[in-house]
Amino acid sequence: MAAVLALTAVGLSLVFGVMRVVNVAHGEFYMIGAVVAWFVTYYLPFPPALAWLAALIIAPLAVALIAALADTLVLKRLNYDPEATIVATIGLLYMLQQAALTFYGSDARPVVAPFQWRIQLPWFGYSGYKLFVVLAAAIILVAVWVFMTRTKAGLVMRATQVDRETAQAFGINVDRVYAGTFALGGALAAAAAVLIVPIQQAHYLMGHDPLLLSFIVVIIGGLGSIRGTLVAALVIGLSDGVISMFFSPTLAKIIATLLVAMVLVFRPQGLFGARA
């Protein structure tokens, strides 16, 4: 599931890169995205495909709204002090998790896939939806890439990333850039979640694993470097399967977390990031 992982991780990396904020609640944005997707598909009287499409639009928007609110109400008031924001996003994590538990419950619930057919290759069958997820994730990633490198908004974001004060001096509304970045990061996580819910069910604790994985991806790719993050996401997503063939899943996770810690200790610029 490297593709979905990459989507989540890019959101986290974007937020860290531009704002220098480690968003511990990022996994909860992912979870909320999945939960919203369930509500949308369950209550909208559309056929599955249409309902799912609606979810793909509504869930990221809803999460982006939550993220923007969190940014203006909390993070901005902390002046984006790195350590205080981590504590605050931990608080946010608990609040979102509890909100999901209260309003959604502790069950895992499935979302019907927009379409079901299998691609029957001569040697094995493959779920068409999974292929579609990979494709969709790739499209979204490319879109983000184009957005960051080709559009004016992307330029503004990158300028803010390089130097906040100068950007402000040039009349860039840093507050709005930050809120927008945080919202975009959340929306990417939510989009990833909507893509994944037809395969994995929506559950209020589902934010935990992707958060850890995203951390791993972002750190190995170099904090804040988007290209490194993409490469790392693909490598880890693919190797995840390979590692778990040799080791039990728990042992694989232990090794992965320790590796991440070591990378941070000995190569703080990440394995692929050339610049600090």
Binding site: L78, V87, A88, G91, L92, Q97, L101
Partner: peptide, 13 residues
């Protein structure tokens, strides 16, 4: 959990 989360956010703020 909500109490814990809200307390954290409230305190740092």
């Amino acid at each position: 959990l909500f109490v814990v989360g809200a307390a954290l956010v409230g305190l740092v703020l």
